[in-house]
Amino acid sequence: MSSLLELDRLSVSYGGMTALSQVSLQVPEGCVVALLGSNGAGKTTTLRTISGLVRPAGGDIRFRGRSIAGLPPHRIAALGVVHVPEGRGIFRSLTVIENLQMASYGRAAAGSHRDIEAAVEMFPVLGRRLNQAAGTLSGGEQQMLALARAFAAEPVLLMLDEISMGLAPAINAQLFATIRSVAERGISMLLIEQYVDAALALADYCYVLEKGRIVDVGEPEDLRHSEALTAAYLGAGVT
């Protein structure tokens, strides 16, 4: 099993505060890997560091065997690392079609008309709103747009940060179903999800982070009843 993405003892600090310390993890080709842990554990920082928004303080990030640590975000995006950040993953003032066209900005090969059409087919509701400003979409539609853009960019590695944040359960179910269908096509993913159940159902492999360190690893079945995981979310003595 060759690793598409490999973090090697990655450390990050913000103004003297350590956000990640010695985080090592691997995303094998064609696998879905989930990062679990409570708020402030360092999950989002991990993704932001991989995609170049945050500079690592130590350690290395290798994508297809090549070090990408410290490259600017647009260079990393050009390699096919597509990151849907937490919260606002869209350009609110651009129209829906312009948001989708941005998918091709870093990757000349991607974002063709066919890619965009295929992405819109996954979320037909977007097709009816192509010329509407993205900021006027509902929360769920905005997240669909963020996902559609990510798919249209033909990702080699797709990183999703809490796409369910602030959305109603029915919409989340739809989003997760779409993500599963994309994963089944063999696209590698690294995802963060607050809904542990959904994450465990999607993932081939999970890492549990706590206070910037990896505290547990394993396959979903092993983790589902793990004390460490439950404790990380709800405190000891829940069950």
Binding site: P73, H74, A77, F91, E98, M102, A103, Y105
Partner: peptide, 19 residues
Amino acid sequence: TATRAVVDNRDLAGLVGAN
């Protein structure tokens, strides 16, 4: 489009490959 994207959300513009 890229210019307006950068104005809108600089970080995200970088993530989708706009310099």
